[in-house]
Design a protein around this nucleic acid. Structure first.
Length: 428
DNA sequence: TCTGGGGTCCTCTCTCAA
DNA sequence: TCTGTTGAGAGAGGACCC
């Protein structure tokens, strides 16, 4: 999860004070809270258009075989009676903040890894709240009472085992229906290897479809199979970093600490279009819009970055990226857009572009950013940007934007988050 | 029948300077 | 002056996570 090195040798016995808390069907559950008539129904949150995917779904939808990341068209076929919702990222963010407040009422050592899950180290909370298992139960109860949301919790000596334990604590769904989960699963010190080895190898953090396929050539199906392979074999098959990491994890060696406040490494915005773009002109407009959105978020987080990248996905899903590193960090939409448009000149869009994205990396704290003429000249972009940021702060992100982006109605500017999980139905 | 958006990290290749 | 080595940094692509 983080860049800390894995240690060699057998797992070090220690107290199981690491918790992984994972909300159950988070987005769908928040939607049910907003509209209680949805309770007990199959609810699917995601892009409803032809290129959308499922972001989250209720357990009632999972009974029909629907799961997250599934194309929405397939989900609709599997569960035609489901209620489809576009999703409200801002709302989920608000709930996420309240969930994290609950976590922080037990320990300051909270490492958020998504809106709906986090690692907690409760070593220092035991005197006040009891054993880690008791704390896990208290957190679940607090989330249920104060927010009306259900969570599953894994308790272990390491982050990685705690994460798999929380998965084991989840409600069980099969074609017969939904059975309640255990809620809290704790793996005792010394019991990690016995817990891990029967699990399928793709349960390991870092084993996706490509790695699983490569491991299958060695007859590896479970974590136990993987653990039985010599480390040198894994390194030669998967590369040094992945090989060493997977071997260590398969033997439950994971000494990474819970780290609150990990720095952001990049900020980007990308979008899939309902219809492919075959010409450069509309993509230039998109570059301006996406760059404006990225710049706005950079400034909100008081960041600036030296590397501007664009990402282009063609009709056949072939994906390329082009990037340029600048002498000084940037955080203004027009500066980012200029580089993005330059990079776009290297790309031939004629085969058809289905996705376009702009991102900024190599981030530095805004305070360490060099002042530019635009910052100094209040009539330049610096002054304009400050005003734009203030208007957006008061009236929302869509209130103001580059003039080139105003649609035919001339009223609203399409902004980030409008199409969170794929384009809406109809022409884009 | 298809395959989102926000990210992180790793690997390989190339260039350039010491 | 020329050649080879090495390391850093940039750029591109890919795999993976939620």
């Amino acid at each position: 999860v983080t860049g800390q090195p894995f240690t060699a040798g057998p797992p070090r016995p220690r107290d199981p004070t690491i918790l992984h808390v994972d909300m159950d069907a988070f987005y769908a559950s928040v939607e049910v809270l907003q509209d209680p008539t949805l309770a007990g129904k199959p609810v699917i949150v995601g892009g409803a258009g032809p290129r959308g995917v499922v972001a989250s779904c209720s357990y009632e939808a999972r009974v029909h075989g629907v799961h997250s990341a599934m194309p929405s068209t397939r989900a609709r076929r599997l569960c035609p009676d489901a209620v489809f919702l576009a999703g409200r990222h801002d709302l989920y963010g608000e709930y996420s903040a309240r969930i994290h407040d609950v976590f922080k009422s037990f320990t300051p050592l909270v490492e958020g890894i998504a809106l709906d899950e986090a690692f907690l180290d409760v070593a220092g909370a035991r005197r006040l709240f009891g054993t880690p298992i008791a704390i896990a139960a208290l957190i679940r109860a607090r989330l249920r009472e104060t927010l009306g949301l259900h969570a599953s919790v894994g308790v272990a000596t390491s982050k990685f085992v705690a994460k798999l334990a929380s998965k084991a604590a989840k409600p069980v769904v099969d074609w017969d229906g939904i059975r309640p989960g255990r809620g809290v699963v704790a793996v005792a010190p010394g019991g990690e290897v016995a817990f891990l080895h029967p699990l399928p190898v793709q349960s390991l953090w870092g084993v996706g479809p490509a790695t699983r396929q490569r491991l299958e050539r060695f007859g590896v199906r479970t974590i136990g199979d993987l653990a039985a392979l010599p480390e040198a074999t894994l390194v030669s098959a998967l590369g040094a970093a992945v090989g060493h990491q997977l071997h260590a994890l398969a033997w439950a060696r994971d000494d990474r600490a819970v780290e609150p406040d990990l720095p952001v490494k990049s900020v980007g915005h990308e979008e899939t279009y309902a219809r492919d773009h075959h010409e450069r002109a509309p993509l230039r407009r998109e570059a301006v819009r996406l760059a404006d959105s990225v710049g706005s978020r950079l400034r909100r987080h008081r960041l600036a970055g030296r590397t501007v990248s664009i990402k282009v996905r063609f009709h056949d899903f072939r994906t390329i990226s082009r990037s340029r590193t600048l002498p000084a960090p940037v955080d203004l939409g027009p500066e980012i857009a200029r580089v993005a448009c330059d990079l776009l000149e290297q790309v031939d869009p004629s085969p058809g572009v289905r996705l376009f994205g702009v991102s900024v990396s190599n981030l530095v704290d805004d305070a360490s950013r060099q002042l530019t003429l635009a910052d100094v000249d209040a009539g330049g972009w610096g002054g304009v940007t400050a005003a734009v940021d203030e208007i957006r702060g008061r009236f929302g992100d869509g209130a103001v934007g580059p003039a080139t982006l105003v649609d035919a109605s001339g009223l609203r500017v399409k902004r980030e988050g409008d199409t969170q999980w794929g384009p809406a139905a109809g022409p884009g």
